[in-house]
Amino acid sequence: MIEVANLVKSFGNNTVLENISTSFQQGEVVAIIGPSGSGKSTFLRCLNLLEQPSLGNITVNEEEITLKEVNKIKVRKQIGMVFQHFHLFPHMTVLENVTYAPLKVRNVKKSEAQSLAKQLIDKVGLTDKLDTYPNQLSGGQKQRVAIARALAMDPEVMLFDEPTSALDPEMVKEVLDVMKDLAQTGMTMIVVTHEMNFAKEVADRILFLDEGKLIEEGDPILFFSNPKTQRAKQFLDKIL
């Protein structure tokens, strides 16, 4: 579904991603792990063109999105994204946050957008917060709204950029639970995370990045019990 070939991203002289090639299948849940500064987030952000790759190409549903003339809006419509710091629109209520993009980008009718939004907000367990503004929500609640907001565009794949890293420990689970439910519905998910248990339990595949290179990829159980590379071994020793 998504093919990445020889992806390179550099900022000036600083090469953040070096020659990454991989692919993501429909319905697959992939966890991207690695030390900070390894380029995980940059890689994710290249997939929806929040960062323009310097070299290489990315194909989504047979369409090459790294071409210059490609319509970024069209690409992003099919790719949902959840950020570490939520980035909810603070001047809109929960319901407005979730209905905004369907109304303005997909031109869905208002009644339709609202009933879809209510369903999604119900799915993330926040029906009682419909008319609340983001500032009155906890971190975990904000992140769940952000997930509902991304899902409202009916994306084919969801990108998660360290979705639980900014949360208080007791709120991590509520967000991970929502993500697990989502994985069970067959959503294609690419998750940059430091939650190793989540990666182990939910992911179908692990990508391990270090210093901008894809060091190792493979099955979570094998990866965590018996990593092939020395670098991955060192990393796991430090954190587990």
Binding site: I73, R149, A150, M153
Partner: peptide, 10 residues
């Protein structure tokens, strides 16, 4: 805020 809007295709 800009990134969130862009990611939604706005």
């Amino acid at each position: 805020q800009t990134e969130a809007a862009q990611a939604l295709g706005v």
